[in-house]
Design a protein around this nucleic acid. Structure first.
Lengths: 160, 160
DNA sequence: GTACCGCTGGGCAGATTGCCCAGTGAATAC
DNA sequence: GTATTCACTGGGCAATCTGCCCAGCGGTAC
């Protein structure tokens, strides 16, 4: 579960140059190719690296508006609400949070006006009592993981 | 900027099997390899596909607790607060939202107890007036983009 | 002392990549 | 109507990388 320094360097390198191959990585890191391969296999089977899916920018797809909606759920309707929200393409993420029956929902829309349509669709479901929406203006720190990886790698004991 | 049906299929295929190569994709999609290559290049230079970085699971790294903090910022301190927060590895994302001087901050921590340490570090800065934290319990819909891509692809006009 | 484990450094065949080309069909410009 | 542009096809090429194998080496655990 814990990662060591070499694991950290592999992940960082992979994040900086995703198209890089195992062979080139081994050259940059100064280790044998088999080592990098084994580390990568382990990181993936550990679940540390979930995958290498394409990172798609909703804005470039025509959905430049991001918002968060806090939903208050009627008792016992949680499952139905989840099923409902998962059918809405503009719902990018759904989290249940502390507080009675609350969910946090990440939305995108084509425009501020379009956001109204999305919200109507989101809250147009019986189990949702109340919704409060916050529009995102800027994203000073886009979703990142590298600093955390570096911290975890620094704390881990090296395997060699 | 708009994507068509083939673009959508490329992105979905790539999301499902990230390790797939251009050649294999062209076979699956029934088009020439050069076509897939050209589409991919266009999607990347368009910014629709930002990259193929590894998706790292913070929980597997030893940070199983996720939380959101809403921060109230002292007037004119926005820039300093951003700089401060970007130095905290446990801050995975930072967004500015509507409402006076508000920011939304995605955090992770090693445990609920450790979350206190992280929050202390986050709010231990002059420009932050008040912070309110919500702990994430479940993640019924993990960050996803496929449904949105499919919707965008269905709406787009085919290029052929 | 022995077994285990991770790393090294090498080799191999097969597949893939990046790059090139000419030809075709459709839409657009003139 | 004709010319141009554009995307796609289908093919070929050398260079590279991958997946897979092996023996050897140095720690560590028992």
């Amino acid at each position: 579960m814990a990662i060591d320094h070499l694991d950290g360097r592999i992940i960082v390198l992979l994040a900086q140059e995703p198209r890089i191959g195992v062979l080139e990585m081994s050259r940059r890191l100064g280790v044998a190719r088999g080592t990098v391969q084994a580390r990568l296999d382990r990181l993936q089977s550990n679940g540390v690296i979930r995958g290498f899916g394409p990172q798609v920018d909703p804005a470039a797809l025509g959905y430049p508006v991001t918002a968060f909606a806090t939903l208050q759920i009627r008792q016992g309707q949680g499952t139905d609400v989840r099923a409902h929200l998962s059918t809405v393409p503009e719902v990018l993420e759904l989290l249940t949070t502390t507080g009675s029956g609350d969910m946090l929902c990440r939305l995108v829309a084509r425009s501020n006006a379009d956001l109204q349509r999305v919200i109507d669709r989101v809250v147009g479901f019986d189990g949702i009592v109340r919704a409060s929406t916050t529009i995102v203006m800027e994203n000073p720190v886009p979703l990142r993981i590298i600093p955390l990886v570096e911290q975890a790698a620094a704390e881990g004991r090296d395997r060699d």
